[in-house]
Design a protein around this nucleic acid. Structure first.
Lengths: 269, 269
DNA sequence: CGACATTTTGACGCTGGTCAATATTGGTGG
DNA sequence: CCACCAATATTGACCAGCGTCAAAATGTCG
């Protein structure tokens, strides 16, 4: 189904560097075949922790199978969800900074990861010219997606956030080799809410509203996406519920929000 | 005033690797003195762009002097502020991912940066054992601060966000060698609002409220911090206006928000 | 001094948070 | 197999925090 097929089940407990690159969907490191290093895999059951905030950093992980959530817990114990890594995503990069993990990573389903030990990172960087590039790009990608999420949260209303979340999640599932328009959410409404800056009730209501609008089907955690493109570009969903058109004029698009950008963009370089 | 003194004004247009490390406040690369590479500086006037979203990635930058804002602009032109880099901060790391910058960086004041060309990064990584570690840590630090900000935005109310923002900004100014309890904001209310997920009016009101509470003094962009610790730990500021203590009981701390964490944290590793 | 950007303050309303009750699922043990 | 319980999800009612619109004050620059 996918060209990016992680070694599965009992047969393979190791990955070559080339396999790791494919998993990450990043260009293969030149000369990767000349190095004999392979990476151990680690299997996790649903609920198991992969990293813990504050614990010493030993390795980076690349998700090969299954779903995770990453989160930070503040002093009062409340947790804030940072992301839902799945196949091909990097986990643990925040530990490079102080050699101590800055977040928790927990498996939401049975899962498997490729373990890239701290030691290997240093060694390979020395022997393989552009191995470091690989790591740079992987971490940098984290930054980019983080910023995209902040943009999403800072700009859109609740329903649009949830819609985008579903579209993005489906897309990522697709890249991982699963069906994109029908899947089972591995996380709770609470976790989605935390991730999107909403409460679980609001997430639930958003699901219902999107279902009423005919954009998705919802049965607990079984989700079906009817119109992915619409979900991705949705800005607002006020037209109350289904067909009932309350003469809502389509011409209310002031969209005059936070605009000053001309001045700064116009500044000479 | 600060041991971390960037070469200033007309005398120095270059920095050694060791100087760059000090600027970043990261442990000095071993053998840094054995390499003769130096990094060019670049001077910018207020309003000038350092990077542009979509432009090819050529170099990383370390801020040596002055203040920046980084932001992304979505399809409609609205901009979302990602951060306010100042002395010692890394700029441009999101360009490593696709060799194309993913955000804009604009100088808010006259400024100066150390230029670390893409080429140098690859070369130094090859010749200097733990140069790559330096870059890893610098980028990883971005991730960590980003996550901290999301936690802040996701958890706190408007006044607390602004309070924390001021405390954090003051702390960073302090590390850069400036006064921490009295400074001039280099950015507008609008930009602060975008950064914190608020409107400019709400930011302005928050400033007024904090001033009424006696925690800060505000005169346009001239800010004075009266009680930094209180600003840093503030959760809510309902007690209407000034000193009038309305018998505020310290025991109202339900803070029973989003708690399930025991289950997951209790999971065996 | 006049045009413009930024900031402050007020009034009002909507989105989404809060509290609460009920339904559905899944797991456990009798 | 069914009773029971905990966790999760759904839905409703209420209301407050913050966004929106508007106007005036202050600062900035030519």
């Amino acid at each position: 189904m996918s060209t990016v097929r992680a070694p599965s089940q009992a047969d393979a407990h190791r990955s070559t560097l080339a396999e790791a690159c494919r998993l990450l969907r990043l260009p293969e490191v030149t000369g990767a075949s000349q190095v004999d290093t392979t990476f151990l895999h680690r299997r996790l059951k649903a609920g198991q922790r992969l990293t813990s905030q504050g614990e010493p950093f030993e390795a980076l992980y690349v998700v090969a199978e299954g779903f995770f959530k990453t989160f930070v817990a503040d002093e009062t114990g409340n947790q804030l969800v940072l992301g839902f890594p799945l196949q091909g995503d990097l986990v643990g990069a925040d530990g490079l900074c102080n050699h101590r993990h800055a977040s928790y990573a927990v498996a939401l389903t049975d899962a498997e990861v490729v373990v890239v030990p701290f030691r290997s990172i240093a060694n390979l960087g020395r022997s393989l010219d552009d191995f470091e590039q690989l790591i740079y790009r992987a971490i940098s990608r984290e930054l980019v997606t983080d910023h995209a999420l902040r943009s999403l949260i800072g700009t859109l209303g609740a329903e649009a956030r949830v819609a985008r979340f579903l579209a993005l999640f489906a897309e990522r599932c697709g890249k991982a080799g699963h069906a994109a328009e029908r899947f089972t959410l591995p996380m709770t409404r609470q976790e989605i809410g935390s991730y999107l800056g909403l409460t679980l009730e609001t997430v639930s209501r958003a699901f219902s509203a999107l279902a009423d609008a005919g954009l998705i089907t919802v049965a607990q955690r079984e989700i079906g996406l009817a119109d992915i493109e619409q979900l991705r570009t949705l800005q607002k969903l006020h037209p109350n519920a289904a067909g009932r058109s309350t003469g809502r004029r389509a011409a209310d698009r002031p969209t005059r929000r936070n605009v000053t950008w001309m001045d700064m963009l116009g500044a000479a370089a």
